[in-house]
Amino acid sequence: MISIIIWTLQLILVPVLSPLFVGIVRKIKAHFQNRQGAGIFQPYRELWKLFHKDEVESEDASWIFRAAPYIIFAVTIVVGASIPIIGTFFASRLSDLLTIVYCLALGTFFLALAGMDTGNAFGGSGSSREMTVAALTEAGLIFSILALAFLAHSTNLVTIVQTVSDLSLFSFTPIILAFVAFLIALLAESARFPFDNPATHLELTMIHEAMILEYSGKKLALIEWASANKFLIFLSLGVNLFFPWGSAASFTPGALLLGLAVFLLKVFLLSAGVAVLESSIAKYRFFRLQDILFTSFILSIIAISLII
């Protein structure tokens, strides 16, 4: 009974909290740019506004255009419910490394299809750029978590969290290398600098935004929410897999509250780090992105070779 309640809370935790962290990143970037910025709860108001707007849909749109927002949002909900967030309970087949990566890839696939669906050239260019970046990011993402899987002798994320929290500080160098590789993959998959500018209005510089140009109203709200969910999923994977101290191991209220508080603090620190990183570098030219993505892959390979 208690586990059902906790599982329901974890299910709604990612969609409820994700706009908050997007708002925190925007606020920190605004302060770096010497302006006040909107409040940290502004993304919630934006979602509310979009859910109360009418939609305009192209005549040439097919069922993919209409179905894609639901598929993308559903994927982020499923993945958010399967990864270790507050604690290391709910180990299942879904909390496996490859399952998570390829469920998220399913969302990316449908987003790219939806971008091309209306025949809009900007959507097509966004889709082609997104597929190129996703193809190269996949290697760095899988291999950085695979480094931890070699340490834990299992690809189940919950087992990885339990094993890494028991390690001594001595074996930490490969974990830091793998974390840097994972950070590059996080920036790539969440469409942040240096891969993509999430606040741009120029189609020449868009990757994620170009694919959702045709969307409006409720479907746009779902896609924006799903993008925020994906950002929070990657942040929580980053803090829970690589720095897992403080995760709850049992269902006692003390452990759960401590786990939640530690999770919020760690994700806040990592999102602040992402905001500082975004404010200090520029967006790369598209044909420079393969250098940084191959660097992520090579760092993971070095981490794996240090572990084996």
Binding site: M116, G119, G124, T132, L136, F286, F287, Q290
Partner: peptide
Amino acid sequence: MEMTATGFSRSLLRMLK
């Protein structure tokens, strides 16, 4: 004007040149 497959394939081929 639509997007063709060239955009998808040539970007990746150029990166892995």
